[in-house]
Design a protein around this nucleic acid. Structure first.
Length: 719
RNA sequence: GGGCGGUUAGCUCAGUUGGUAGAGCAAUGCCCUUACAAGGCAUGGGUCACAAGUUCGAGUCUUGUACCGCCCACCA
């Protein structure tokens, strides 16, 4: 170390290397840790990456003492830093070590040191020795001739393309990762000693002179080499990332200027994991911009958007790996696997067989029943639903199960639709003698909203939000409300043919649209169902894959229908809540009375009795006018309107009081919170007027509701 | 050491310009109601890691702390 006073006087002098008897220059470099050991270290630029860097700083020769099997040479190969042979230094090595493996030679050298009285002491010291991934063998750095790509000139335009937005990363934060690597890029070693791959396009003549060209014929003509000159192509192949970096254009016929290349290059989107940004994405951008140009000569980019997804990890958040035995094979989730087969699969072919018992135990604990068959669509939908941007995916079997059930739900919705519509007039012939019910108009409106949401989220690469929008529309709206609502028409003897036709038409058309909407996320079940209902839907085309993706149409949104159904749902929820809390069987139809409603309430009630009766399982619907006698009832509120379910023989008095009290307490809490807010002068003064008005409204409505609930509690208590 | 991300219900995760916290699974109660029990209906469950700040108002914005994870570098 240049500042180490102990050795300052030695800098520029030499030490004599024992046994070899070679003079070694003493240099000073702050790479050395003065605190460790003697504070001196022998530098071997030919056998260590760090030492190589030190060697470059001090112009040290590169002395290779190993052959390709890491045995000691008889005569060292000595190079200068520019790669030329160094003939000034004598490379002779002690004859007794020639041909010995390095470990054996090390032992003998220690013995020789000891014998010569040169060994002071031996200390234990932990080292991090690199080993080959597959073989586990210690890796020794060794000088070889390799091909390099000079990356700085390639990196500059590649950085610019991301800086100026020609290429965008989703999510954007990964651009930082890209920049940090590109701005500190090292020259790229592209030759590999493998049997497969693109061979390096370089040829050597007998004297070792190198010629580079696209092929041998080109080399011969370019360098004017006759057939008498024997040429051998370099044995090495290109780094796999070099070859795959050519992917976007080499697959389109490049270097020919094919129609495909003109039409499809640059491509739109690359989907990949963040761990591939350096390996692949960066290199694709560099190579493409260098090799492929627009007609005006400016560089073409390979793709416009890079969508970076997270890594899929196991349930504990661990990266999946064979050696950890925590790999989930997608096929096992799709087709299912029994425990014994799974254990066997995870414990065979391990790099370290000692891990087998641990892996077996862990697997038996995590999957005591093996893995059920969930199917391809469920798995795919699960990945989509977990694919929020910018974070890894911790895999959750519970989610797969939920989405497997979702597949079933869609299937059963199809069964219902078939039952109602097969061999029936569904008004798909272009005629207009049908009538749409409130439910029909409502689901059509909701469908437009769902289409809009799904499309927006797909456009923003938010597959998780898109899948959620699909799920809630299909399950919570189409299945839970709409299918039930159709029964009020289809099972009603009084409904007209036109009404039934309108409902069947909507039932089929919305289902068919759902299939197209879901298809990218669930390709198989949607195709299957699409084909089955094709005779009913009258959809054109051979396959759903070629069908148009749904597009929202704002003119189909019926605000009145949305409002009416929202009101109906509140009424139904009120009755269901009483039923649920009072433990009244869903099979029992209830007589229900309404009072104190507005004209609007009465109108809606009159118009939608059928729906209400069906959805809430009502025996009768009665409107009470002021002064009408009313039986003792359990009550629910929708706005100011009271819903009365007569208690006679049904309801436990205490239970009803408890229910009403709970409801009332919730509202009182809310009132207190909101009033506290309104009591704050600064809030009233500074918050937007509509926010303040909203809060005031809220207090007023809740106060009325609480008052009604209290009256009701008193009435029942008095019984 | 440099950089990035995370911390929200028992579990896995959403929460889009600050304005009453959501989903799936799990849990509880009642139901084989003629698409679906892999289902239906209802219900419970969260001081949004912690602390300070900005603001009338913070899961959301700022700063700091703790813990977890990843990338890069270093490791005589």
């Amino acid at each position: 170390h240049p500042e180490d006073e102990r050795y300052k006087s030695l800098i520029g002098k030499f030490v004599l290397l024992p046994l070899v008897n070679r003079l070694i220059p003493i240099v000073a470099d702050d790479y050395v840790d003065r605190e460790f050991g003697t504070g001196c270290v022998k530098i071997t630029p030919a056998h260590d990456f760090n030492d190589y860097e030190v060697g470059k700083r001090h112009n040290l020769p590169l002395i290779n003492v190993l052959d390709k099997n890491a045995a000691i040479l008889g005569v060292a190969q000595i190079f200068n830093l520019d790669g030329s042979l160094n003939t000034q230094i004598d490379g002779t090595l002690p004859a007794q070590y020639a041909g010995l493996d390095r470990y054996e030679a090390r032992k003998q050298i220690v013995t020789a040191f000891e014998a010569a009285g040169l060994l002071e002491k031996i200390d234990d010291h932990g080292l991090k020795v690199p080993r080959g991934d597959r073989s586990g063998v210690v890796i020794e750095p060794w000088l070889t001739d390799q091909w390099y790509v000079s990356t700085k000139p390639l990196a500059e335009p590649a950085i610019a393309a991301v800086e100026d937005g020609r290429i965008q990363f989703v999510p954007k934060q990964y651009e930082n990762m890209y920049f940090s690597w590109m701005r500190d890029i090292q020259d790229w070693c592209i030759s590999r000693q493998l049997w497969w791959g693109h061979r390096i396009p370089a040829w050597y003549d007998a004297s070792g002179k190198v010629y580079v060209g696209r092929n041998e014929a080109e080399v011969r003509s370019k360098y004017n080499l006759g057939t008498d000159v024997k040429l051998n192509q370099d044995e090495d192949v290109l780094d796999t990332w070099f070859s795959s970096g050519l992917w976007t254009f080499s697959t389109l016929g490049w270097p020919e200027q094919t129609e495909f290349l003109k039409k499809f290059h640059p491509t739109d989107l690359l989907v990949t994991g963040f761990d591939i940004i350096f390996f692949w994405v960066a290199r694709m951008i560099m190579l493409t911009m260098h090799l492929v140009k627009h007609e005006d000569g400016t560089p073409q980019i390979p793709f416009k958007t890079v969508y970076v997804h997270g890594l899929v990890r196991d349930g504990q958040g661990q990266k999946m790996s064979k050696s950890k035995g925590n790999v989930l094979d997608p096929l096992d989730i799709i087709d299912g696997i029994d425990l014994e087969t799974l254990v066997q699969k995870r414990t065979t072919g391990l790099m370290n067989p000692k891990d087998a018992p641990k892996i077996e135990k862990q697997t038996r604990k995590e999957f005591p029943e093996g893995i059920q068959a969930y199917g391809t669509d469920a798995l795919r939908f699960t990945f989509c639903s977990l694919a929020s941007t910018g974070r890894d995916i911790k895999f959750d079997m519970g989610r797969v199960e939920g989405y497997r059930n979702f597949c079933n739900k869609i299937w059963n919705a199809m069964r219902f639709t078939l039952m109602q519509c097969e061999n029936q007039d569904c008004a798909q012939d272009g005629s207009s003698d049908y009538e749409l019910s409130l439910g029909d108009r409502w689901i059509i409106s909701k469908l437009q909203i769902a289409e809009k949401t799904v499309t927006e989220n797909l456009d923003n690469y938010r597959l998780d939000l898109a899948s959620q929008a699909i799920y809630s529309f299909v399950w919570d709206e189409y299945c839970s409300w709409y299918l039930e609502a159709t029964k009020a028409v289809l099972f009603n003897a009084d409904a007209t043919a036109a009404q039934k036709k309108g409902t069947r038409r909507t039932l089929v058309r919305v289902l068919e649209t759902i299939l197209r909407l879901v298809h990218p996320l669930m390709p198989f079940i949607t195709e299957e169902i699409w084909q089955i209902i094709k005779p009913l839907s009258g959809a054109a085309g051979e396959t759903i894959m070629h069908a148009q993706y749904p597009q929202a149409d704002d003119s189909k949104i019926d605000q009145q229908a949305l409002n009416d159904v929202e009101w109906l749902q509140a009424v139904v929820l009120g009755v269901r809540n009483i039923r649920g809390e009072m433990n009244i069987s869903p099979a029992k139809d209830l007589p229900v009375l309404f009072k104190n409603g507005t004209d609007d309430d009465q109108q809606r009630l009159t118009n939608n009795q059928q729906f209400l009766k069906k959805l809430a399982s009502l025996e009768s619907v009665t409107w009470l006018n002021a002064g009408d006698a009313e039986p003792m009832s359990a009550t629910a509120l929708v706005g100011q309107m009271e819903i009365l379910v007569p208690m006679a023989g049904l309801i436990d008095k205490d239970a009803e009081i408890a229910r009403l009290t709970k409801e009332s307490n919730k509202l009182v809490q809310d009132i207190e919170r909101t009033e506290a807010k309104l009591a704050n002068a600064a809030f009233v003064e500074k918050a937007p007027t509509e926010v303040v008005a909203n809060e005031r409204n809220r207090v007023a409505e809740n106060k009325i509701a609480v008052e009604k609930l209290r009256e009701q509690i008193q009435k029942i208590s008095a019984l």
